[in-house]
Nucleic acid binder design. Structure first.
Lengths: 353, 353
DNA sequence: TGGCCATACGCAATCGGTTGCGCCGCGGGT
DNA sequence: ACCCGCGGCGCAACCGATTGCGTATGGCCA
């Protein structure tokens, strides 16, 4: 390939090493190594070394450094799926947070498969990440307990687990808020399209929802509960099963917006109008929720990502991690008879921009 | 940091090394190293070594191996944004493809910012990835040419660029298909909500659309073209601008489903009904498209990911990469007067499950 | 039975930094 | 004037594998 002079000082030719820097400056490697860690201006030697480094286009090799020091400057994030926008948003935020601080992120996705979870964590560990962000925790503690037993700093994000440091949304509160809202809108017989029960997030939402409904005197009928996955397909299937069984509910809470999207299709196919015949509430407040005019709970994914990253980096440096719970926010739209999409859409649609 | 005895929990004490394996088997490190690369059953020594490795729970250290060998067994993927589901789908597929083959993926996201692009590529390179998958190429060749000049195997995915190996969808064909469809549905005055012009994908879609419309005798009116980003917010804004200017179009092609979602909100706010007053076509066929009953073009993201990964791994092993273009598929739904959502939803909603 | 080749194995250098240790010189305290 | 402390620096070991080279060995064929 052609190699224009200004564009890449170090292509082709051997990449500059510490040894070369040492020769060029007449100092010893170790001196150079140490000088590079100082501020350029702190000291004549430091300045000399930094200047030489700049001239040669020296870039330290993190591999070699990690091998000796045991620190890699990288954290691992394991997600259940990055096609789940909520996880992707968390990842993006984590990425930007840590990269700004000179760290790096290695991701892995497990599809919530226990075998893959362990395998991917081991892979990350073999790459010697300094800490782990776990986004695919299951409520049965096996996986998470195992992670904890590895002796590597870790923080759970989005899905918590008893006795482990985590950054989560207050899912139970969110469930209660939805119950409040639906009942306030006059719905006394409502359904629940729950997510997988092994997700603490889904579980928490369901528990809060159920508990609050009971408190409000409109207890959830077990016959109106369907549980499944987090995708549109499972949401649609769940709503179809429900409709085949009962048609006397006037509202439903879906474990995620994707589930709500699927449910919407099923409602449409059954000739029921969203918001008029059946009120629907989703979860995550994705961009598309605005377009569907879907009431949804916004959980602060960006903030979760940032806080979790911050907490993990603290843990790596020895600060004990203490769990945090962030506040959800109900965004009311037309699917529960709220204001029309037009009124709210503008300030909402920018997520992920 | 101080370095008290306990601060290096399991790492220093426990992690089995090649040397330990050597001592335990009475063989030399180099012999052990080589025996591990053989099949366990191929040879008594190999079996002995493998057994010992299993007993000690030996896991090779990729850092050390890479340092010496120059190969990391990792590829880098740079995405413009993982909250874009299309990119996330590609990533997921790449991840599974290469992990199955003993490789690993390091991702980075750049938000399409030129500064970030170079920085992140350099970061990946400093981690010594064996090859690069570029998902955020821009049409002006600067960035991609620079990547090519680095001398590292690379493949562009989703967004191509002249003279560089890539795996893309036939975006121009897709644009033509949409034009055909809209005209067939009787729309002769249609609008275009284009994506960023520096994306070859967006550009190609627009070109194909425009060209085919002209061929069909219904040329695109420049006054009916809006361009912007790929998000719901920009889609909504674009449609609002358009509606403020003109109301005489009966159909529109959106550069992505997200843009279409935003456009839908704007239409609703203007009191126009999707499919009845204005026909809309999106791009990517995301899960939510089904629920919105949105006609969309499905581009084969999974296949793109797989093919690109395959091609890159080939390139790493010396097989020259030759660009491939995959076929798009139009999914007709209610937003262009197609069959109701109910008819098609079932087999479509499972994407990403 | 002798010679030759393929193979298995040991030895030691190597990848590119980091870090404990010891030396040296300089400045300050008494 | 003396001694101590401290900071900068060089030396060399080290992290955990891979790999070129030299030697011993076993199988095969003549």
């Amino acid at each position: 390939m052609t190699n224009p002079p200004g564009s890449d000082p170090l292509a082709g030719a051997g990449r500059p090493t510490l040894r070369m820097l040492a020769e060029r400056t007449g100092l010893h490697m170790s001196t150079v190594s140490r000088a590079l860690r100082r501020e350029p201006a702190s000291d004549p030697t430091a300045e000399l070394v930094h200047r030489a480094a700049a001239e040669l286009g020296y870039r330290p090799d993190p591999l070699a450094a990690s091998l000796r020091s045991g620190k890699t400057g990288a954290i691992g994030m394991v997600a259940h799926s990055l096609t789940d926008i909520a996880q992707a948003m968390i990842y993006e935020e984590v990425d930007h947070y840590v990269v700004e601080r000179g760290y790096d992120v290695l991701v892995a996705s497990t599809r919530d498969d226990p075998g893959a979870q362990r395998k991917r964590v081991e892979l990350l560990l073999s790459r010697r990440v300094d800490g782990l962000l776990i986004g695919d925790a299951h409520r049965d503690g096996d996986y998470v307990d195992w992670v904890a037993s590895l002796g590597v700093p870790y923080v759970l994000v989005m899905r918590g687990a008893e006795g482990h440091p985590s950054v989560t949304c207050d899912d139970e509160l969110a469930g209660r808020m939805v119950a409040d809202h639906l009942v306030e809108c006059g719905h006394t017989r409502v359904a629940l399209l729950a997510g997988p029960d092994w997700s603490a997030a889904s579980h928490g939402r369901a528990v809060g929802f159920r508990t609050r409904l009971a408190e409000l005197g409109a207890p959830l009928d077990d016959d109106l509960v369907e549980s499944g996955g987090l995708h549109a397909a499972t949401g649609r299937a769940a709503m179809e099963r429900l409709l085949a069984r009962r048609r006397d509910f006037t509202g439903a809470f879906c474990a995620s917006d994707f589930v709500a999207f699927g449910a919407t299709s099923a409602l449409a196919a059954a000739g029921l109008r969203l918001g008029d015949d059946v009120a629907l509430v989703g979860f995550n407040d994705l961009q598309a929720a605005t377009s569907l005019d879907l009431t949804s709970v916004r959980s602060p994914q960006e903030e979760m990502g940032r806080v979790a990253a911050e907490m993990l980096m603290g843990a790596i440096e020895g600060v004990p991690a203490v769990s945090r719970t962030l506040a959800p926010q109900l965004i009311v739209r037309g699917s529960t008879g709220g204001p029309a999409a037009s009124a709210l859409a503008a300030d909402v649609a920018g997520a992920g921009a």
